[in-house]
Design a protein around this nucleic acid. Structure first.
Lengths: 104, 104
DNA sequence: CTATCTTACAACCTTATGGTTGTAGATCAA
DNA sequence: TTGATCTACAACCATAAGGTTGTAAGATAG
């Protein structure tokens, strides 16, 4: 995964409405307009949020008749988590080095 | 942690330069201008990036003479990770429910 | 067929982002 | 003291974000 892709993921997650859409779309049984009914903003705004999430591969859309079902993708959330984990590891490495210096 | 705070954290992480500043600042021995030497952008730009990270509590600044040392904070990275984990848990819950339905 | 629902998308507005240059005040080294 | 370094901040610019309204087209129910 390259920097640009990671940028997209974190940017998509940096909005409370979008984070909630990810949660609501876990079952994959909600359409765009179905999601829109959950929030006090326009249908178009939700469409844009879903587009941002889709570009980040945090959700997937699939057409069922006239509606577009939205399903979130756990792999991408997992990938973001792993990235944060890799950053966290750097602290542990630093602590290990301090231990090494203190060894007799 | 409220939504606005989480927004700040993910927004701060949605930029490759800022993610790198977090990594470079783990030891806490780099100043703002010291960091600026690592990147091909202006000192002021780095100052702004550090300000964004500080507002998200991803780094802390402390003055040493004329320079401002930057140290990243692992707790905030950990908090972001936990949030993603909570979202991931929702998938597991869903899988558990499917298992329950299938039980004899 | 017609009316309704759902999506798609263009156009627009306001504010935020990420960068620049320039200026000024502290602090340190010599 | 003087000169270099580091930070702070204002001003500016281009573009992206996040929202709106309006219009059009595809799919479905009756």
């Amino acid at each position: 995964m390259n920097d640009a892709q990671i940028d997209l993921i974190f940017h998509a997650l940096a909005d409370a409405t979008r984070r909630d859409i990810v949660r609501q779309s876990i079952n994959g049984d909600l359409s765009v307009s179905g999601l829109a009914r959950l929030y006090p903003i326009s249908n178009t705004a939700i469409q844009k949020h879903v587009a941002v999430l889709e570009k980040a591969h945090l959700v997937q859309r699939s057409r069922r008749g006239r509606e577009q079902l939205v399903k979130s993708r756990s792999e991408t959330v997992a990938a973001a988590k792993q990235l944060l984990d890799e950053i966290e590891q750097l602290w542990r490495i630093r602590i290990d080095q301090i231990d090494w210096q203190w060894a007799p």
